[in-house]
Write a protein that binds this DNA or RNA. Structure first.
Lengths: 144, 144
DNA sequence: TCCTCCATGATATAACATAACATCTAGGCA
DNA sequence: TGCCTAGATGTTATGTTATATCATGGAGGA
């Protein structure tokens, strides 16, 4: 995880992006918690860490992180997760456990390829594919 | 489209579900508009049609329609569309045009199969897969 | 009849997100 | 150095989406 922070730092340096304290802190929070967090939860944690806590503070940092591939938004939960393989060009698919809310990120090359095929039949040009599965994670499924 | 309404009616009769006036009206609205509508837009249209217009009115009807497969929620837009092939057991994938906001529903058997494969590697049991592509529809792409 | 289940009515509020404008700060360059 | 610019942050206000809660109504079964 300190790893992901370092990668983000490096990427920003190389691409002339500002990895400011609040952006770094939000990414640290996401990576530490290792679960999907809402913007307002993040905001609370920022406040605890001494940052300002108006909503735009969190949303701006999250926009930055998402735009640059350091975090992802989970649309079904209106929440955010740190990216597990930043830097790499990737097509993530998320597995969201309906019981414990744990979110795991998997690489979704095949599904997104299939989506593109379907799309091109329909004359649609895909720029981004959101793939989110809901269900039960291994540990919740086995303890059920 | 009158067709989809009839199918919904039939399905409800067979499954002992109440296809009440407000539920029917919301489905009619979705099918007529043939685009993604937010709950509050639907609420306005309900009011125009003489229904009550507190938020729960729309959300309850939408919950019913989504739960029974007559409509879908588009997570990226926080909005709703009528289902294009109700009744059939299906895995929809949505193509959302970022220019005109038009949403088309395609059948996503392959992508959702690939998602399940990835999931099972991860020990995850998929109950529902959300697949939404963002990009340009044919007509917007060609006029660009 | 009366009871139960579900739908609807109604009020309030929670949760999520952005608009708009002011201020600050680092870095380029005259 | 001193100015200028671009982007980041501060701040206030508000817009948008969604749900909790409790009261009321109405169809159908025992």
């Amino acid at each position: 995880m300190g790893n992901s922070i370092k990668e983000a730092e490096k990427y920003c340096k190389e691409n002339d992006l500002k990895f400011t304290p609040v952006r770094r802190k939000v990414l640290e929070i996401l990576l530490q918690k290792n679960k999907a967090l809402g913007a307002y939860e993040i905001l609370d944690l920022l406040r605890e860490a001494g940052f300002k806590n108006q909503p735009p503070v969190a949303y701006r940092a999250l926009d930055f992180l998402v735009k640059n591939g350091f975090a992802h938004k989970i649309e079904q939960l209106n929440s955010f997760v740190g990216c597990m393989h930043p830097g790499k060009d990737h097509s993530p698919a998320f597995m969201i456990c309906r019981n414990c809310d744990f979110v795991s990120e998997e690489e979704a090359i095949n599904p997104s390829f299939s989506v593109s095929k379907i799309a091109s039949k329909a004359g649609f040009k895909v720029e981004k594919a959101v793939i989110e599965a809901r269900g039960l994670c291994h540990s919740c499924a086995s303890s059920a």
